Amino acid sequence: MKKHLLSLGDFTREELRALIDRALILKAEAKQGIRHQQLAGRKICLLFEKPSTRTRVSFEAGMYGLGGQVIFMSAKESQLGRGEPLKDTARVLARYVDAIVVRTFGQDVVEELAKYSDVPVINALTDLHHPCQVLSDMMTVLEKKGTLDTTKVAWIGDGNNMANSWIEAASVFGFPLSLACPEGFAPNQEILEKATAKSPRAISLTQSPSEAIKGVDVVNVDVWASMGQESEQEKRLGLFQKYQLNAALMAEADKEAIFMHCLPAHRGEEVTEEILEGPQSVIFDQAENKMHIHAAILEHFILGAKK
């Protein structure tokens, strides 16, 4: 497997499935009260330029659950905010810790850190990709649906980093994916074209939510304006209104379909309260699974890097 986790498209189906399967084992063992120490004495640095609740806490809980230690640094607490070259930051931090977990804006940041780091660099979110989140989402789909290969997945809303990572996941695992995005808010064109050419099943893009959601097994939405796009919030509220997931739209999915949202949710905007709190919602199982997938990622990449 690769040394770093920067995007899902860098990996094979077998490699990603191994991470998910390991996370399922760690989750089951946690429920049984089994405690682990395989990362005792190991340290990670969470280098976050973007704020976080779930990603930060789930990475910290995952690392502590394996016996390791965590150093958290926000942009204002590091030299990144003062213009230190990334290659210097990477080489220094690699002398101190066993992995660097990065939550930032540009994909170029994690790529440059990975280029110069002697320890694994894990992408905890960029504007282009959100690989760890989608791994935990696929773990949730596997738990709820029993399979990934033929499960029909829909993405409704902004063609953001989550959409890009779902596209890559679909191409790697081969499950059908339909996306409905407003004009001008499509996913990254290069990622979409590459994934479509590679995938054995259809990855389709439309501007019709009804077309994308029809008969699917999994429905995904996200906020209409991500971090860094707050100035566009009012404009997007108007453009995205028909993309709201409500009872009428959800009814067009399979009757056993599950609803997913990576959170935080803007209740009453991209999704109604009725759907969020309804029986098809698995958002809190999804949130919990972040901790288990992050533990599996840290275990694999840290221990693998020392071989």
Rank of each mutant, 00 (worst) to 15 (best):
L142N: 13
K144G: 01
R91W: 01
I275E: 02
S136Q: 12
K290V: 05
L6H: 01
L86Q: 05
L66A: 10
G215R: 08
F173P: 06
D10V: 01
A169P: 07
V70P: 09
K115Y: 09
S165F: 12
I156Q: 00
L249V: 14
R13M: 03
Q69M: 13
F240S: 02
I34M: 07
F175D: 06
T151L: 06
N161F: 00
N289K: 10
I156L: 14
V57K: 07
P85M: 10
V97P: 08
G184L: 08
M260W: 04
L39R: 04
A265I: 05
D108Q: 15
A163G: 14
R91M: 09
K255W: 08
F185E: 14
N246A: 07
S231G: 13
L47Q: 06
G146W: 08
G184W: 11
E299H: 13
G159Q: 13
P51M: 12
I297P: 00
L142W: 13
V271I: 09
P51C: 12
H300Y: 10
A154M: 03
K2L: 06
E111V: 00
S281G: 09
A251D: 10
V216F: 06
A257M: 11
I213S: 00
E14I: 03
A253R: 09
S204Y: 02
V141N: 04
Q107Y: 02
E273F: 04
R35G: 02
D10M: 11
G157K: 10
N246H: 12
I20C: 02
S210R: 12
Q38A: 11
A253I: 11
A287D: 05
D10W: 07
C45S: 09
C262I: 03
M250Q: 03
M260F: 02
K27Y: 07
H300F: 03
E273L: 09
N160E: 06
K198M: 11
A197F: 00
V119C: 04
E277D: 13
S231W: 14
N160W: 01
E256Y: 06
K306H: 11
Q32V: 12
E277K: 15
G184D: 07
F72K: 10
K87F: 10
H266T: 12
Q241G: 04
S231P: 00
G33D: 03
S117Q: 08
A40V: 10
Y96W: 13
V92S: 07
A170V: 00
S199I: 04
A90G: 11
V121K: 14
A99I: 13
S178R: 15
T206M: 06
F173L: 08
